[in-house]
């Protein structure tokens, strides 16, 4: 194709998205659209999968059967969400194995929030309430994104995610209304997860490299700073309701903006964690790569068994 022809196709493509038409796997798309979607969608899938690890830590130690079945169901949902998103990414012509390789080799990123440790039961509450809360804010606009398979996967994810946040808040509420030690535990978890949850919504708008292009392709509907403000405004009253204090001395209602002003975020910490120097980066990758490598004989055995059954069936036909 000549440069002019490509330019023409690109213009038509952008016009389709501007008209709110969806792009489907076999449609022509610019290389950059394909690559950006593979990057963002696989990053999203990896985050779901790695996100199971900090919570898996607490399954055997959940304080009651009610909490245990809920946590198990939440983690199973995350596995499911990872799978919806991986298969949606595969429609762009990349294989599952390539995607796993990118994660395991450190080439692909996942949400940096999962590189923090889960040291008390209250962390299960804080993750559900804050981390899933921030994730929902990020994800709801994606139900309407331009790439059909991604939008469809996100609709399923969003439907399932709201129980995650509610079960987390319920854990925090119970602890906050419990003994003084339990309330301290809840406050301590909020103290540790608050700032990483704010960072989870991404770098500030002036530092975010992908925003303009992503807005055009409806990979993003609101900027990181707007999403962060929305998260803060909706979460502060939730903390107040259960008597917990947001760990930010500068947090203050701004009557003119009808929004909360908030303190400086430690972006050095964010970039350190993104670059692999968070408290749990190595541990998470070790667990993930370990699970993949130790599962290889199972995957091979399943394939060998399937082949044998197939051959037996063919013999019977003859």
């Amino acid at each position: 194709m000549s440069e002019e022809q490509i330019k023409n196709l690109e213009d038509q493509f952008e016009a389709r998205i501007a008209r709110d038409e969806k792009i489907e796997p076999k449609d022509w798309m610019p290389d950059k659209y394909r690559k950006t979607h593979i990057r963002q969608m696989s990053q999203h899938a990896h985050s779901e999968v790695v996100g199971m690890l900090p919570e898996g830590n607490w399954i055997t130690r959940a304080p009651s059967l009610r909490r245990k079945v809920a946590l198990l169901a939440k983690i199973q949902d995350e596995a499911g969400h990872g799978l919806y998103l991986y298969s949606a990414t595969e429609t762009l012509g990349v294989s599952r194995n390539e995607l796993y390789d990118q994660l395991h080799s450190g080439k692909a990123k996942y949400s940096s929030i999962f590189n923090y440790p889960t040291i008390t039961w209250a962390d299960m509450g804080a993750i559900g309430w804050l981390v899933d809360g921030a994730a929902i804010i990020n994800q709801v606009p994606l139900c309407n994104t331009s790439y059909g398979p991604y939008a469809r996967a996100m609709i399923r994810v969003c439907k399932e995610e709201s129980f995650h946040q509610r079960q987390g808040y319920e854990i925090m509420m119970k602890l906050a209304n419990g003994t003084p030690e339990q309330k301290d535990m809840a406050q301590d978890a909020l103290n540790r997860w608050w700032w990483p949850s704010l960072m989870m919504l991404g770098p500030t708008d002036d530092k975010s490299v992908h925003t303009a292009q992503s807005m055009k392709w409806k990979l993003k509907r609101k900027s990181n700073d707007d999403l962060r403000q929305q998260f803060i405004d909706q979460t502060v009253p939730q903390a107040e309701l259960i008597g917990l204090t947001i760990p930010d001395a500068d947090l203050k209602w701004n009557e003119d903006r009808k929004s909360y002003d908030f303190g400086e975020i430690d972006w050095d910490e964010f970039w350190q964690v993104v670059k692999g120097h968070g408290p749990m980066n190595k541990e998470r990758m070790k667990a993930r790569v370990g699970a993949w490598e130790e599962g290889e004989w199972v995957r091979d055995a399943a394939m060998a068994h399937a082949k044998k059954k197939q051959e037996r069936k063919q013999k019977q036909v003859v």
């Binding site: 499911g80 399932e160 059954k309």
Partner: peptide, 23 residues
């Protein structure tokens, strides 16, 4: 509903149950 990887049809059915019909 979507797609998934499985060794054979039987496993695909079982995995589809878990991945796409949890509710």
């Amino acid at each position: 509903f979507g797609s998934l990887h499985a060794a054979d049809a039987e496993m695909a059915l079982e995995n589809a149950r878990d991945v796409y019909t949890r509710r």
